[in-house]
Design a binder for these strands. Sequence first.
DNA 1: GAAGTTGTTGGAAGCGCTTCCAGTTCTGGG
DNA 2: CCCAGAACTGGAAGCGCTTCCAACAACTTC
Lengths: 343, 343
Amino acid sequence: MEPSPKRMPTLDEVAARAGVSRTAASRVINNAPHVSRAKREAVQRAVRELGFVPNPAAQALATRKVGAVVLAVSSDEPGLFADPFFAEVVVGVSAALEQTDLELILLLANTPRGRERFERLLRSRRADGVMLMALRGDDLLGRLCQEAGLPVVFGGLPLTGEPTWYVDADNRGGARLAAEHFARTGRRRPVMITGQVDARASVAREQGFTDGLTLSGLPLLGVEPGQFTEDGGAAAMERLLRAHPDPDAVFAASDAMAIGALRTLRERGLRVPEDVAVIGFDDLASARHTSPPLTTVHQPVRALGQEMARMLVGAIEGHRPSPLILPTRLTVRESAPDLPVQA
Amino acid sequence: MEPSPKRMPTLDEVAARAGVSRTAASRVINNAPHVSRAKREAVQRAVRELGFVPNPAAQALATRKVGAVVLAVSSDEPGLFADPFFAEVVVGVSAALEQTDLELILLLANTPRGRERFERLLRSRRADGVMLMALRGDDLLGRLCQEAGLPVVFGGLPLTGEPTWYVDADNRGGARLAAEHFARTGRRRPVMITGQVDARASVAREQGFTDGLTLSGLPLLGVEPGQFTEDGGAAAMERLLRAHPDPDAVFAASDAMAIGALRTLRERGLRVPEDVAVIGFDDLASARHTSPPLTTVHQPVRALGQEMARMLVGAIEGHRPSPLILPTRLTVRESAPDLPVQA
DNA sequence: GAAGTTGTTGGAAGCGCTTCCAGTTCTGGG
DNA sequence: CCCAGAACTGGAAGCGCTTCCAACAACTTC
């Protein structure tokens, strides 16, 4: 009962029990060649009987491979990780790693102390590779990884530069779908709520929305940043209404902000979708349950996590770099229905 | 640029550069005694100049301490982790660990494969301790940890037994507050939505609600399980309405279920809080933004994570066991206001 | 039947760090 | 000025596993 660090059997004991050399035993547990069938089986039996599990520290020391990767989330807001988006990414990453024998180390690098620990982690080779999310601005975490000579895959593009390994959603294409949907359903006075100005995803979504509008011959009446938060979205919506009294469509660069916008619109007595249509971005679970249910650009968040992990495994195994862009699509619900609304 | 596993300096090189023995250098980096001031400074300089960081694998091998703990989340639903609740716990855990030099390994043990990996993780001593969350029913993960002789702290009590180390919220007391609030504000026909029947938190909340009702001399008209999900809560509400046509108060064992109940009530044309008051449990961020805003029992989720981590550190350091119950309190918002409502 | 081939085997040298222990140097009190 | 005791010092033996390498054994192929 007492947490006594019970000593586990070692490879030597396994070898002794199986009547072979330590070398042979090692070969068996790594199923390497050059072991006769008989000895192999003897070793396997001994492993089973003793309940032997190799000591990862010893393996790491000998092979210089630690059997773990880190998922680092960097942001200024301590609470940002609480965003369901990240939880979903983690689920994806975890699912992909489950197929391997890599452990997942999670690091929230939002405080100075956190960053320091991250750097230490890299330099100490405690992980075989790194997944990096939510880089803001000219975040130097990426550079740190490069310097440490560890494989890094980015989740979402950083603001500047194009890393060799990354997976991202088609932000620009998805935002364009939103614009086209507005045009198709007869909206004429769209506005937009963006995220932080130094977030590349936000920039790409604004870009894509503008693309789509231009192609449809529509103007963009106004743009306000909303910090990717619900309250930020609500505030942005207020600012927009003040500056542009009569929008009939609003595209928010995230569901959270769209929900905030919904709130403001309701408070101002504007009906959704009759007076103004609303489209969000992400398609989180909560988008299904707003009132009215939110039309939104769906991005495959869990898949994003999965692909990041898979890609990292590839990078560790020495594959050639190949970035990945995951498709987005429009999920139409009532906040911006398919058919033009008769006001 | 190429991820070449750059070789890092070793203790020997540090020692050589500082002109001391490897032993002395080791003492300095662990700031152990028995090193003269002069040598200590020489070593520190060498460490700085070389950018030396001790190799954790080697340290682990020599000390039998790996410098990592694991947070294991077990559940049958693969998506459960996506619950903002867990994200929040992770933030707390992470914040507490940041003060130490323990790394956080995250393991989602919802698949059979996941459980297998968890067991392997334990037996291989890849972590110095374990935090276990969301044990369902007679989950044997806890037992596994005990057997491995690793310190374990439970987040929330398991269904059976009372582990020596755990931190939990005062579920029973919180639920009782909900009942008392109903009684105080003139509600007379309360019903309740519980979570899974084999979740101890759910049981405790039901218990507490009953306690409070009994004390106030109120009956409990009906109880339905809602799986802790929004849709489950909505469905439970429907069943309750069918069986008990005229409740004037509903207590849900989680915010998600309360939100589901809100939806059903709205669809049925019942006004909240005029016709029926609603109280949830958790006080997640989303509770603030429902319509009407949700009155709910607040539990300090992030603190829960923090305390789990702190407690685990204590357990690893050999302190004496001391379970912890975190206080809950009622956050009153409009779905169940403070003053009796004039219908 | 000699000369290769191909496949096994285990000894031994690490991987990088901690720590026991025996020996050495400093103290200050007598 | 001598000596007990405290404070340093570094050699060496691990921690548990991988892997190079030299030595062998078992088969082929002319």
